[in-house]
Amino acid sequence: MQQDLLIAQLQEGNEKAFERIYQLYATSMYGIIFSIVRDEKISEEILQDVFLKIWDNAPSYDSDQGRFFTWILNIARNASIDKLRSKEFKNKRSDLKDYDFTEILETSSNASGKIDAIGLQKYIDLLGPVCKKLIDLLFFKGFTQKESAEELQIPLGTVKTKNRVCIDKLRANISKR
């Protein structure tokens, strides 16, 4: 498979392979990052950091542990959440509560196209409103389970249970494809 060769070359430090990886995945990663931080300039900065991490950590990628796309998606998500949890973003938390990533996915904006480039829309559409909101808070906005419980005004135990159920539904939907 051509992607496996490209990844192997990346792991060996091949700059051309890295450029090709960037071309293939930058738009999708930017969409995920933007959906979390909601700021173009900061999203671009995080995107650069993410690809530096991909370059630096490429030898640690193991295809037996999961798909390459999932690996880089986790790097992007974690870098974005780290930024959200930084001091400078703590003061902006209330602004984030006004947005919902599902609204972005459902609009025809430029960011929407970038996010849907990774195929999230079809899986999001299959989830109920409770799962959408919970996944929005926990995975796209970087809320802790406790913060999500406070935001949704439900017990922490309920958040934990619903999170597990929602993730199971999402996994089932993805595995059906």
Rank of each mutant, 00 (worst) to 15 (best):
T27V: 15
S28E: 15
S28Q: 15
M29V: 15
M29Q: 14
G31M: 08
I32C: 10
I32Q: 08
F34R: 05
F34P: 00
F34S: 05
I36D: 01
I36N: 07
R38L: 13
E40R: 12
K41D: 12
K41V: 12
E44T: 12
E45F: 06
E45A: 11
I46S: 05
V50S: 03
V50H: 02
V50L: 05
F51Y: 09
F51A: 04
L52M: 12
L52E: 14
L52T: 12
K53P: 00
N57Q: 15
N57E: 14
A58N: 02
P59C: 07
Y61N: 01
Y61P: 00
S63Q: 08
Q65T: 03
Q65A: 06
G66L: 00
R67L: 01
F68K: 01
I72M: 03
I72P: 00
I72A: 01
L73Q: 12
R77C: 05
N78G: 09
N78F: 11
N78E: 14
A79G: 07
D82P: 03
R85M: 11
R85V: 07
S86Q: 11
K87D: 09
E88C: 05
E88S: 13
N91Y: 04
K92A: 09
S94V: 10
S94E: 14
D95T: 08
D95N: 09
L96A: 04
K97Q: 10
D100W: 07
D100K: 09
F101R: 07
F101I: 15
E103G: 08
L105W: 09
E106L: 15
S108V: 15
S109F: 08
S109Q: 12
N110F: 13
N110C: 09
A111M: 06
A111G: 03
A111S: 14
S112Q: 02
S112E: 02
K114T: 00
I115G: 00
D116I: 08
D116E: 10
I118F: 13
L120V: 14
K122Y: 04
K122E: 11
Y123A: 02
Y123I: 02
Y123L: 06
L126R: 10
L126K: 12
L127C: 04
L127D: 03
L127T: 01
P129T: 02
V130E: 10
C131M: 04
K133S: 04
D136A: 04
F139L: 08
F139K: 05
F140Y: 11
G142H: 01
G142A: 06
T144F: 02
T144C: 03
Q145I: 13
